[in-house]
Computed example of a mutant assay.
Amino acid sequence: MLKPILSAFAALILSGCATVAPEKVDERDPLQSINRTVYDFNMDVLDAYILKPVAEGYLAVTNDPVRKSVYAFTTNIAAPTDAVNALLQGKPKDTGINTARFLVNSTVGIFGLFDVATSLGLKHKDEDFGQTLGVWGVGDGAYLMLPGYGPSTARNITGDVVDNFVLPELALSTPQSLLVYAVRSIDLRASLLSQEKLLRESLDPYVFMKDIYFQRQLYELHDGNPPIKEEEVEDFDEDFLENL
C-alpha cells in the first residue's frame, strides 16, 4: 500500500510548528489555480455523484471472475495499440509479444475474455502514444486537470486521444470506442476504491495526486525502472502505480 509522501510536513505539525512555509511554485503546474478548481469539480461532483456510485454498483453486481474477464477484454482490445506504440518506440520484442497476445487471447481466449497469453509467458507490455512521444524527446508540457478525465499533461492528453480514439477507429466505430473507454474507466475506478484512504489522509490531496501521476509517468516511460534513487520511490506501492 502506498504511503503518503508528505510525512515530513506531518512531523512539523506534530512538533507544534507555529508557522507553515508557503507552497513552492511547481513549474510543472503553471495552471494550478484553474487545475485545482477542476479537481474540486471532478472529485466533489462528478466522482462523488456519478463515477464512484457507478463503480460501487459495478462491484456489487459482478464477482471477481467477471471483473477479470472485463479487464482482460479491454486490455486485449488495446493490444494492437500497444503493439504499434512499442514498434514506434523501437521495441520489436514488445511489439511481437503484444501482437502474439492479441492473436492468442482473441482466439483461444474467446475474444479476449480470458487472458490465456499470460499463462503462456506472454506478459502484457503496456505502451501508449504519450510514452512514444516521450521516447521521441517530447517533454511533458503543462500539467492539466481535465473535467471528467482527471490528471494529464499536454503531451499525454495528445497521446490519450491517439490511443483511445484515433488508432481504435481503424477497427472500431466511434460508439464502440467510446463504450470500450467507458467500461475501462469504470473498471479502473472500481479497482481504486480500496485505496481512497491514501488520498483522503494526505495533507493536500491535489498535490498528492499530481505527484503520484508524475511518478507513474516516469515509471511507465522507463518500463518500471526509472533513473532515480531507490530511496526516492520506496514509499510508492508498485501495484498502486500500475493501477493509476
Rank of each mutant, 00 (worst) to 15 (best):
W136V: 05
F236R: 04
G159V: 10
Y49C: 10
L221M: 04
I97T: 08
Y219V: 05
E238R: 04
E56M: 15
P22A: 13
M43L: 07
A55Q: 04
K123T: 12
N225V: 02
A190K: 03
F114D: 05
E201A: 08
G224N: 03
E27F: 12
L167G: 11
F165Y: 08
K125W: 01
F73S: 03
S194G: 05
V104I: 14
R155M: 07
A79N: 13
R101W: 09
L218K: 02
V183R: 00
H124M: 08
V84T: 05
P30V: 08
L198C: 05
L59G: 04
L179I: 06
G134I: 04
L133N: 02
S152I: 05
L59Q: 03
L146E: 03
K229T: 15
D115C: 06
D223E: 01
V183E: 02
M1L: 13
E220D: 06
I13G: 14
V138E: 13
N105Y: 02
D187P: 05
L198E: 03
N156G: 05
L14T: 10
P227M: 14
L6E: 15
T107W: 06
A154E: 03
K197V: 14
L172C: 14
P65K: 10
S185E: 15
E220T: 05
L12F: 12
